[in-house]
Amino acid sequence: MDTLLHLLLLLVILLNFFLLGSSRLASCIRTTAFQGGILSLLPLLAHGFSGHTLFLASVAFLLKGIAIPYLLFRAIRQVHIRREVEPLIGYVPTLILGTLATAGAFIFSGRLPLIPEHSQSLFVPVGLATLATGFLMLISRRKAITQALGYLIFENGIFIFGMLLTEAMPLMVESGVLLDLLVGVFVMTILMHQINREFSTMNTDNLTSLKE
């Protein structure tokens, strides 16, 4: 079971790098959906089949795999843009920073003492790496949609980390987290729609008039 878990986690890291590197919006959303799908499998693999984990996996799959990507695709269609404009610091530097962040995540998680049964699992480093990637996308991308995607990956990172503590996280709070994620993204899409209607473009360069 562990080897499959490790494989999935490594796949998640690869997807991270792909996201950092790719410029086409549609493929980014599909990758995020795919990553969401993988993550929703994790609880089943990590903690076996129990009512709690089943429900958690299905809700996660529903939200991360289907609902949110559908919302984002709808947003793209209304705005009919396909291509992410050159990020603030260029693709190659973003990738370099992405690798540095992942290395940093691994070093940092190395210093955190894990309890015996978790000592082998890669949850903590992968979680932190995905988190750092999400942060990097938020910082470097111009388009509002890609920033929303960055926020999604950021949430995925936390979700991975949450896997360690499934028995601590009662059901109600878990669903609360996912629900808030959904509402957050929903409001973001509405706003993106407004931004597009107002500025007739999705990048956030002209969203800088509020300054000192």
Partner: peptide
Amino acid sequence: SMEATWKYLLLGSVGIALAML
């Protein structure tokens, strides 16, 4: 106000996610 809301929402969500972590 739209720009203010966008920034508020994004920064707020990132903050809340960090708090969750």
